[in-house]
Design a protein around this nucleic acid. Sequence first.
DNA 1: TTGTAGGCGTTATCAT
DNA 2: ATGATAACGCCTACAA
Lengths: 345, 345
Amino acid sequence: MTRRPTVVEVADRAGVSIASVSRVLNGKSARSDTEDRVRAAVADLGYLPDSRGRALKLGSTLQVAFAVDDVGNPVYTEMLQGVEEGMSGSGARLLVASTGHDLGDLVALVASLSRGYADALVISPLRRSPELVQALVDAPVPVVVVGDVGEGTPLDTVRTDSRQGVVIAHEHLRQTGRRRIAFVNGPTDTAPGRARRDGYEQACAAALSEGQSSAYGMVEASDFSVGAGEKAWAELQTRGSGRRPDAVIAANDLLAFGVMRAALSAGLRIPGQLGVVGIDDTQFARVFSPSLTSVSLGARERGRIAARLLLERLEAPTTPPRVERVEPVLVVRESSARATSNARR
Amino acid sequence: MTRRPTVVEVADRAGVSIASVSRVLNGKSARSDTEDRVRAAVADLGYLPDSRGRALKLGSTLQVAFAVDDVGNPVYTEMLQGVEEGMSGSGARLLVASTGHDLGDLVALVASLSRGYADALVISPLRRSPELVQALVDAPVPVVVVGDVGEGTPLDTVRTDSRQGVVIAHEHLRQTGRRRIAFVNGPTDTAPGRARRDGYEQACAAALSEGQSSAYGMVEASDFSVGAGEKAWAELQTRGSGRRPDAVIAANDLLAFGVMRAALSAGLRIPGQLGVVGIDDTQFARVFSPSLTSVSLGARERGRIAARLLLERLEAPTTPPRVERVEPVLVVRESSARATSNARR
DNA sequence: TTGTAGGCGTTATCAT
DNA sequence: ATGATAACGCCTACAA
């Protein structure tokens, strides 16, 4: 187990100076016989440039950090895959930080970027405190935010319109005949939670102005998980004016899965007695039985776009920040089919 | 946007030498007033040690690479979370490489570790070629393999017994009265594919020796995905001696979800007409409707153990390689309940 | 206890 | 076109 070769050994073996080795390896012009000898020496020794030396000298690491609240949520896995796709070919590696739910951790993470272990950051935060936004703006490396970070914040951003996503879901459910549409939201101290609540309120108001009363009420789950969705369903049972909702919009697919699981366990038929629509259109929405109608927010594409923005930002650090948008798209599946006559009790 | 401070600036401000700064920061003894002044300077300047300089000097990066075939498969997400848990507190960052399905990529990845961008590697390869095993053994950094890498390979390993997992699943299905048990396997050119096939054959043989004929046959899916599971179900329909299987063991949960989706779409009742058991016990097994009986292989725990082995290996590089085992555990849920009389046609 | 100086492996400047 | 040399930021003998 001998030490790894360095430029010095390569130079010795090729009979040239380390400067020539470096030049050849970095594609600067060199006499062809010099180049040949260097390449031969490199091949002989199995030399690979050390990324640590390189990082120190160049001040960049070819690493991008991806920070996310919960890698366990498939929507973030898909976003991760998008980022990976978007960066493939750039030679950059991906550093994944699942920050749990501690907001302080996130701020600390961003601050610690000034240790220089990543050239850039892609972050999709659930909660945005003023401190976090400030930390992102002040970050020592380029940052791309996937999500809502407030108008006018000078950061590259990939946005979608999840408020509108809820509106679309609501319209769809009304079109399938539902009139008592409940909303299972995530925590409203999160950006998506607020946006989606606004969407629900807007949709209910719109329905009312068309003479349709459709609001059943919102229940706020403790987080965006399956378990919280199950609890939210239970809570929904305790309220209500005697009548059950005939449809539920869930703020994301995990909550929707939880609602479906609880409702099906209680013996309800979906979509017969209960229509369900999720948000995110994660990979399991299609698979679940019944398959879940869901509003796609293009997680994978948002990841891809974030990566592209990042690469372009690294090329041109001074161009003004850009905002890219991905439109929500309703994907209709079984869980929201029109309640059939034989589904009536 | 001024440059980040370095030890030099800290030393200047504290009125000491850079050596003293370094010593204080690394917990070596120093006179208390020196220490105070250094700490004050550090705080004033918001100094954070540069990980690049540190990495070059110390020859280590505080980074661990985690390589996996498909981050889209929840079992690997869970393993990732386990690794993250196991490393928390070590201060190490996690570099995630989803290698797709190209084996050459994997070998290249391992080889590129000698660029020194990670101190260690946790890898859970689906396919193991002699080249890959050799690359792992020769890797310039400690490697922990989660999975089967062949007896006697001198590498830290976290194993489970997925062959036994299939046997357990088979026994369980027989106990619930099934007698025509099919096996939907993944590709048999993968290590898990082979182990699970062996388990199925062993289980069928054991049943036969007890006078129970239970073998329905194996179908090999093109990969370990939901879509492949759906196709495998279709293929299963084309064979068979007229009678349908009364149960399916799937080589992992994704395949099981695919089978369930296809079977339910075809109008079959689960578990009434078809019992289904998966492997991995991923987070959605509990959620699916009907919930999926699955053999847990402790993905998260294996990740945690891998991280522990790694940290211990970094402490003591010369101790002999170790093998840790996680036992398969059957988690019984709805999809394999005994076929009830009203479920008979 | 503290400071000086050297080196980790690389790239880049500046002579030649 | 090439080579000697100086950085990048950090840690750590070694000397004082």
